[in-house]
Design a binder for these strands. Sequence first.
DNA 1: CGATTCCTTGAGGATTATCAACCAACGTGG
DNA 2: CCACGTTGGTTGATAATCCTCAAGGAATCG
Lengths: 252, 252
Amino acid sequence: MSNRPAINVRSMDLHTIKVACSNCNLRELCMPVGLSGEEMERLDDVVATRRKVKRGEALFHAGEKFESLYAIRTGFFKTCVTTEDGRDQVTGFQMAGEIIGLDGIVNDLHSCDAVALEDAEVCVMPYDRIEDLSREINGLQRHVHRIMSREIVRDQGVMLLLGSMRAEERLAAFLLNLVQRLHARGFSQSELILRMTREEIGSYLGLKLETVSRTFSRFAEDGIVEVKQRYVRILDTDALTRLVNAVQPACH
Amino acid sequence: MSNRPAINVRSMDLHTIKVACSNCNLRELCMPVGLSGEEMERLDDVVATRRKVKRGEALFHAGEKFESLYAIRTGFFKTCVTTEDGRDQVTGFQMAGEIIGLDGIVNDLHSCDAVALEDAEVCVMPYDRIEDLSREINGLQRHVHRIMSREIVRDQGVMLLLGSMRAEERLAAFLLNLVQRLHARGFSQSELILRMTREEIGSYLGLKLETVSRTFSRFAEDGIVEVKQRYVRILDTDALTRLVNAVQPACH
DNA sequence: CGATTCCTTGAGGATTATCAACCAACGTGG
DNA sequence: CCACGTTGGTTGATAATCCTCAAGGAATCG
């Protein structure tokens, strides 16, 4: 690995082929969006290492020094802030192609935990190198800004959810958001396996786990979904949409 | 104004002196943080125009094309997302030195309204120019990233508040946050004039205005604050801190 | 296969929302 | 300058939603 030829590496090293952004099937969702072939190869050099995270383990903890952003290759994460008295608030769920760690930039410290909800693998992107490269590649700069802005807009949506929606509306919004993101990754629009517990869903939605469970049951009674533990099949997307639409930001 | 000499402008034009970041008393809080004198002058060229916004008017609306970030010079803003059925969720309150408009970057459209709660003036920073300049000035690049990251961390805090705090805790957190930010701007640590209505506070905190009002009254009964309409005097900061501390993110 | 974790459901209680009335402050125009 | 309309704030009574406590059962993991 250490003394491989400097050019045309990718065609000579099968392992490296797998690692490169240019060959990653997530490239349309992930960091390299909008980059040319040559630019993507430069990004490949930045995304040097990978890291596996076992289910239940943390990719990083609040308070740890911030050094890298992470692109999720496989697996599923939650981010959460833990309070001094032990409550903990899930601030988001992340899946393949999404970027975590942006919270660390302000203070050079992570401000939340990122925990794998299933065995996962992430691409490690040292932040210094991302900074350097995004000064040279306009498309990367734009994309980094967009990713951060997207996170801000997503957070606005969560505030709306937490601030002004009732339990049913929250769960409907949550389910629709999940399937929509899964669908963008080639999964079903109507079936999904929840990677998180009722308690984690509840924490994210500002509800207790019992309320989440009851709301699932009510949806099932009403024929809106079929629920068997972690398995969820959406039978009536429109019904969920109706619940949510009323409170969704007006599209101008 | 149009045919002034190209060099040494600032020393020749009193109006321009007032406009420059380099002479702004907010420069330690605002966009130019950490820039050298020369770098700041280059930023001055970007921050070309100002805009006054009257109380009640919007700096921008959700759905409008995104073109600039705005630095608040004077005045006080709220940002809010309006839902299709007319509910609206206040997502934040912004004061002098803070930057608004970051939500617009993802889709080149603003995703929320920014409304002045008192007569205000902002510095208009065309986003294209900020992008260009931050490729050349490392300190500016870092700072832009930090501002966005700070917003993300702030949002995490709001989620924690909305997701797991009770009315008293929410209002305590809100008050402490406000005075702390005002104090950083040279105002009192214990006295403040609220720029927003009970309804706007309630929207931000996920409470109804009556609940906000009642909670203020309870704080007043308990001798924690003195409240007379928009005027608030904090009598017992520790009591507020105790209410909030338990649920604040653990500092590692 | 046993132990643990996770999920469901019920009963009762707490917090916050809703509805309503009244009061205070502010600003405008006569 | 005062009257009046409007907006904003307070407080009470009642209702709805969600939480808490509790117990039983299902699924999962080592």
